[in-house]
Design a protein around this nucleic acid. Structure first.
Lengths: 220, 220, 220, 220
DNA sequence: GATGAATGAGACTTCATTCAT
DNA sequence: TATGAATGAAGTCTCATTCAT
């Protein structure tokens, strides 16, 4: 094929380093993370890390980008299941909400967000990586689906982007305190309850008014 | 007159150190923050920092606790203005929402949250400091007020604690992305818009049903 | 009488500081000994130590000198009991030997010697303090007594100074290894055995030859 | 061939560090010795010292152990020359005594003993290193030889271990004061005199009694 | 290409000493 | 006079990074 055994080994080593780097960064923070430790955890020599990534800063970027890509993929896959095939909009939203919360509460997701918060002053471009690669696209994807559901008459979201933001807020906001920024495990049942409450509030606000009934003014 | 500039009292020096410490920790992160820098910024010798706080770790705790106390005070003061004296519940909530967002978007608040996220793995007890001292009490205070407004007939929040959580979520959730975790300044007008949208959604969900009108079942 | 209450307090404090200093120096070594610790152990403030002794180095000197004086006094008192009143020279020497070993094995004596060894490079004059104040005078005092015993016909020490040195050597030499430089406690019985063996060897060498027998030349 | 001055092998560097460490520790004491200074004296970077020895404490141990091994070797080699090949036991003992005193009075030996005294409180295990590695074995080796000389009829030491202790005591005891713990140089002639006096006294005590023979052989 | 070894810069922390009360 | 507070200098140790094999 395309790769010799040696080349395959190199790529695999690179992947092992990125994985180890994310794990160590997440555990210890950027500054406290030792390149020795990362190298050891990846099973390579310290100099090998440098030959692959140049310096520690770049290693952080790559690790974060890889982690963001993973999170993006899972979130998009979940959102794509939100179609207008079903008539029970509440059940659909709850199912999607629960799965989005699963993504949000994944250990790697918490670690990614914490790392981002931690290093945003030192490396402001990290946020761009994340936002353009993941957060923004997820919100937009959800907004797209809400728009289609509105068109289909299942919802009433005249400002789909704002509605998407609020949907995420209602889902994840209560988790931040409950999960103690990812330090505490939140049981499935509690996650489901939060998701149901979020969907309930969301639907109160964004359910289409029955036809023929004079509706109140909508907001901006 | 007891104090010249050179001869500040011990307490003043302690306060200066705490302030400088929070500023430097917020700017550089715990590990990267140099005690030299903190001391210089506080206008004292490095050893003085140690004589006051023992070690860097304890200094972080004190700085965080002080900052959390400040944030708590501002939030509580705001929430206390949410009374049932006015008939215009929407206006009241919007006013409170806007002021809560001001607290939330204050530079020190962002810094506090980022610092917390950053160091939670190394210092898990920080979260306890914050949660018991600030976050929990703010949420409960808001829940209290929502309950009173419900009793007064202005709202319908059968689960005030959950409603309070959602109110905060609707307010602050959209800010996280818009403010880029505090890196980007969000103009007043945008903050007001977020607050209004949050209050609108909140009221859709928690406005008392008109008397004599059959209401839909609420979920669990 | 001569001192006011305040003055008496000062002198007592000075003594307390010297005692504490010796204890701490002995325990931790000069460099590792903290003036804080000495002050605390003496029950005074750190600055008081400085007002009494000027600096740490001088404090060491005073502490060592005081300790050397104590050791000197005990040794001299013991040696003075070595008279020619008794006919049993062996018993006399053994009694003195045992009591000299008690002095030598006292915790403070070990500490003094260790401290001296430790700091002799940094403070060469310490040795002068000790030697002129104590060691030299003890050896000379013993040499005096050996000379008188020789004159009285109980011993034969044509070179009393050398004999005194060897007496001390036979006594203390075996103790160094047995007591592990003062770290290990040597039981009384063992000390007595060492003293008896020392006296035995000493007497083999320095017992006067029987009268009427042609004696061999003694060496220098 | 392989090693230029700049590129000494790892083992050579290690040896250079140990040597420098012993020199600096001996000169300044453990606490006052700077790792910087040791590194500079060894011609390596400070961090290299740490990569080899972990920490300063361990460096002390290794330096002391190395020095003790050297001293042991010299002492054992000397003692091994004490055979029963010669008939002149006095000359043999004097020769060995002089050479043992040379070992004892070597600068490194003094330094080793001073260092040991100095740090025994902080590092009690140092004494075990020395005792098991050197002191004990030297005394035992001498005791062995004294026993063989007794068997051969040249000496009479029914308790060889004690006799060995006393031989060392008579040799080294007088040196401690004369050499001022190694601070003062003792001329060869004086060392020889001490050795002769020691041997004289030793022989007075441990010469075999003539069996049925009228007079003993005269000494030198 | 991968690695063991080395290093320079810098971090936290301590401590003898001084000063104003 | 005695002291609490402050400090500058110094020390141990770590770590990201490079170089020769």
């Amino acid at each position: 094929m395309s790769g010799t055994i040696a080349a395959r080994g190199r790529i695999e080593k690179r992947q092992a380093i990125v994985d180890a780097a994310f794990a160590v960064f997440a555990r210890a923070g950027y500054a406290q993370a030792g390149v020795d430790v990362i190298a050891a955890e990846a099973g390579v020599a310290k100099a090998t890390v440098y030959s692959h990534f140049g310096d520690k800063e770049n290693l952080l970027r790559e690790a974060i980008a890889a982690s963001a890509d993973q999170a993006l993929a899972r979130n998009l896959a979940t959102i794509e299941t939100l179609t207008d095939h079903s008539d029970d909009i509440r059940a659909s939203l709850e199912r999607v909400g629960i799965r989005l919360l699963e993504c949000y509460c994944d250990d790697r997701s918490w670690a990614l967000r914490r790392l981002l918060s931690a290093e945003i002053n030192q490396f402001p471009d990290l946020l761009d990586i994340i936002h353009t690669r993941a957060a923004e696209r997820v919100t937009e994807a959800l907004a797209d689906r809400l728009a289609r559901l509105t068109v289909a008459g299942h919802l009433h979201t005249p400002a789909p982007r704002l509605a998407a933001e609020q949907f995420f807020a209602l889902l994840t906001g209560p988790m931040d305190t409950r999960a103690r920024l990812g330090t505490r495990h939140v049981p499935n049942s509690e996650r489901r309850a939060v998701a149901r409450a979020a969907v309930h509030t969301f639907l109160q606000a964004f359910t289409p008014k029955p036809v023929g009934t004079p509706s109140r003014r909508s907001d901006t």
